[in-house]
Design a protein around this nucleic acid. Structure first.
Length: 575
DNA sequence: GCCGTTTTCGGCCCGACTGTTTTCAGTCG
């Protein structure tokens, strides 16, 4: 069993233990172990072989044994027994919002509830309301939760969440009672998908802000409406939380609700080690009674704990606090660093814009160059180019560059399919005639096993004309998992052959994921951030790719398309 | 289940809101 699968098992064990009513700290131990495993950069195989699993933070004797067993055999008695003890229906109930492990445990034990259907019946017949500690409202809340589970059990793309959140933020900022308003949460951390929206507001009239928030037109349901905190469900299904604090409390609140949860836990631990206690209200002496230390902004808060300000994108509970302590936080890439992009389509294949329209948009963005990489012939679903048509496009691009020297420079490329056997979709001669070659998998990746897909990609990476691998895992966010592929081997092949890996910036891909870049960076593999634009406006997607690079801790030097035109020509062996 | 320049046992991050309660447990983030 590979790392990701083991992570899933550990997480699943956590959920099952919760339903069994196990000790909360034991549950957390499994969750922590899963996260540690998820984040480590060394190969799991090495750690197991060398017996060093327990070197990992939060992995002790018991977890190490379980992980090793899963790795070697793919099975675990402890897990199988647990699954057998907890009916599937109960497992599913854990996904109902507002219903936790303890309640599920009691509903099962005292009412014999074993599925969402029987839970619905128990609520409707009044059995739940009659239970001690429950009541009418609890029952209807559960019913509502069941409905919502069916309707809104999904996250949204970062880009979608932005579209919903920005108008709310503007509205908040437009209120007289509001001093400051910011978006926090995973949207501020620029996660690839967002589960809910968090707004933090500084105001001395919290009720006014609360009332405005819950009365907005696109609010479908008010989940909570308190003095300083409210939660609503918006029309599109996204939940939005609002927290109102005073101006003095704002920095700590913004930090707290930006998270992540793991980051906050680590920050609070650090505070405790220094005799301090950190909460959303601020920093005070341990056991203090509200005498919070005043800070001007988040940087002030970090400084009180001996830390550099940590950019929100890095606050995922990895090594960011260690780095902030030792002044070794990376200088992160900025959108302004981007000088062009190489993976873009025109109407020659499945895009909407002409060469000229794409070039004009690139010019408008201030770019120095734009690469055209239409699909190759095997991607017939995308109107892939024949060799003849691609030769014509190369000529067209050469003419464009000759006729308009003061504008953006166009590079002639292709997004060439990696065929099932690892060969490429165009002749070596044609590939050599191009300025650069993007390769990617479009067909069959999901029908092949991990070893076959990996070999297929590695073979392509060894082709002399290839420049970079596009969307290395083929995932489509919220729709399709990655195809099975051994990324460590792909990264090693890229390093060995001087190829680049794409950060596909299309909001539905964001592939290669930010979690996967440690190994690539260590091996000196360059990233290339590409919008995969299918129309002129699509070029601006690069900003989502910049988000991914920042979360990965990459600076401008690690990204190929931060090079200026002359440097890029050199990188592509064109000068 | 993990962890330890105060510790190998007894802790483990902190607080708002809700609903069901008259002081608190459960859930969430």
């Amino acid at each position: 069993m590979n790392r990701d699968e083991i992570v899933e098992v550990l997480e699943e064990i956590g959920v099952l233990l919760q339903i069994k009513g196990e000790n909360a700290f034991k549950i957390r131990a499994y969750e922590n172990g899963a996260r540690t495993l998820e984040r480590m950069t060394e190969s799991l195989e090495t750690l197991v072989e060398e017996g060093r699993l327990q070197d990992l933070d939060g992995v002790g004797k018991a977890l190490a044994e379980k992980v090793e067993t899963l790795f070697r055999t793919g099975e675990l008695d402890f897990y199988e027994k647990l699954k057998a003890e907890v009916p599937d229906g109960l497992r599913k109930m854990a996904e109902i919002s507002g219903l936790g492990g303890k309640s599920i445990h009691r509903l099962h034990k005292e009412l014999g509830v074993e599925s969402i259907e029987s839970l619905r019946e128990a609520c409707e017949s009044g059995k739940v309301a009659a239970l001690k500690g429950f009541g009418d409202k609890s029952a209807s809340k559960i019913l509502n939760g069941i409905d919502n589970l069916e309707r809104f059990s999904r996250r949204e793309l970062l880009s979608t969440a932005e579209e919903v959140a920005f108008p709310v933020l503007e509205g908040l900022r437009g209120l007289k009672a509001v001093e400051r308003a910011e978006i926090a949460g995973s949207l501020r951390r620029r996660k690839e998908t967002v589960g809910d929206l968090d707004f933090i507001v500084a105001s001395d009239k919290p009720e006014v802000v609360m009332d405005w928030f819950v009365d907005r037109e696109d609010v479908e349901e008010v989940i909570a409406h308190g003095k300083t905190k409210s939660s609503v469900r918006l029309g599109g299904g996204l939940q939005a939380d609002l927290r109102v604090v005073s101006g003095i409390e704002f920095p700590a609140a913004l930090h707290h609700f930006t998270g992540s949860k793991d980051h906050n836990v680590q920050m609070r631990k650090r505070a405790l080690e220094q005799g301090l206690s950190l909460s959303e209200w601020g920093l005070q002496k341990k056991g203090g009674d509200g005498d919070y230390q005043s800070v001007d902004d988040e940087a002030g808060l970090f400084a009180k704990l001996g830390l550099e300000w940590i950019p929100p994108e890095l606050r995922e509970g990895g090594r960011e606090i260690d780095m902030a302590e030792t002044d070794t936080l990376p200088q992160l890439l900025q959108l302004d660093d981007i000088r062009g992009a190489l993976h873009n389509h025109t109407r020659a294949s499945d895009g909407r814009g002409t060469l000229k329209e794409m070039a004009e948009e690139a010019t408008r963005l201030g770019w120095e160059y734009l690469g055209i990489a239409d699909h190759s012939r095997s991607s017939f679903q995308a109107n892939g180019l024949s060799e003849e048509r691609l030769y014509e496009q190369i000529d067209e691009i050469r003419r464009f560059n000759e006729e308009s020297e003061d504008k953006v420079h166009l590079f002639a490329g292709t997004e060439c399919d990696i065929l099932k056997d690892g060969s490429l979709d165009f002749s070596d001669e044609l590939l050599a005639a191009l300025d650069y070659v993007v390769v990617s998998i479009h067909q069959g990746g999901f029908g092949q096993d991990r070893d076959t897909v990996t070999k297929r990609i590695v073979a392509a990476m060894e082709h002399p004309s290839v420049t970079l691998l596009a969307h290395p895992t083929g995932r489509v966010l919220l729709q399709r998992d990655p195809y099975p592929v051994d990324l460590a081997k792909v990264i090693d092949a890229a390093a060995a052959n001087g190829k680049w890996l794409e950060i596909n910036a299309h909001p539905i891909r964001l592939d290669l994921d930010w979690r996967e870049w440690d190994r690539a960076r260590e091996k000196g593999v360059l990233a290339c951030i590409n919008p995969d634009a299918h129309r002129p406006e699509g070029l601006s997607y690069v900003r989502f790719g910049v988000d991914v690079a920042r979360k990965a801790g990459l600076g401008a030097e690690a990204v190929a398309n931060t090079r200026n035109l002359a440097e890029m020509k050199k990188l592509l062996d064109l000068s």
